[in-house]
């Protein structure tokens, strides 16, 4: 019989574990479907993109945040989104001299808590979903960015580093046939 005192502990933690485990099951299914890790990376990025274009709306609605004035502003927003959705607090560092490129450093990453990569998956970018999410979310607020992993603690690097680079501002494009 279940002890009444020891009820399911921390619902926040449970939530994030459910997400982590589901994501892990997805990645392992993808690895079975595509033999090539590059294809898996691409799929994860694409799925992330689809999530990104939707989650930005959720983010804006929850935070009622204002327009960003520069990339530093954007970096701060992305950082707070990580805090909000995943409960991690990445550090924003390594700005390029032109302030159009920065890194997010993750000292802990709940996504990889239960993960160990076998030697056969060294080219897999396990968290590539994040890159897609950032790209998709920024695109919906007229910012074209690219993002990629520079370091990954799953592969023995000392930390996990995600780089984000500003490409250009997108102009509002009218759909063809409308004035």
């Amino acid at each position: 019989m279940a002890r009444p005192g020891a009820r399911v502990a921390d619902s926040k933690k449970i939530n994030s574990e459910l997400f982590t485990l589901t994501y892990g099951a997805l990645v392992s299914q993808l690895l079975k479907d595509y033999e090539n890790a590059e294809d898996v990376n691409r799929q994860l990025d694409r799925m992330g993109y689809n999530i990104g274009v939707r989650i930005i709306e959720d983010f804006l609605a929850r935070t009622s945040t204002a327009r960003c004035t520069d990339m530093r502003d954007t970096a701060e927003k992305i950082q707070s989104a990580f805090k909000m959705y995943l409960g991690v607090n990445p550090t924003v560092t390594s700005w390029s001299p032109a302030s159009d490129e920065f890194s997010l450093l993750f000292d802990q990453n709940p996504m990889t808590e239960f993960v160990e990569l076998p030697d056969s998956c060294l080219s897999l970018k396990y968290c590539n979903l994040f890159c897609g999410i950032i790209r998709g979310a920024c695109e919906m607020v007229q910012l074209e960015v690219t993002s990629w992993f520079v370091q990954d603690s799953l592969k023995g690097d000392p930390t996990t580093e995600l780089r984000v680079k500003f490409v250009k501002k997108l102009e509002d494009a009218m759909p063809a046939g409308e004035d």
């Binding site: 939530n15 799925m47 689809n50 999530i51 989650i55 909000m84 959705y85 995943l86």
Partner: peptide, 19 residues
């Protein structure tokens, strides 16, 4: 809570990916 949205979206993506 915010992270619920993330899980919902992930689930949608998984469904749409496999189908």
């Amino acid at each position: 809570m915010a992270d619920d949205a993330l899980f919902d979206f992930l689930h949608m993506e998984i469904v749409s990916h496999v189908t």
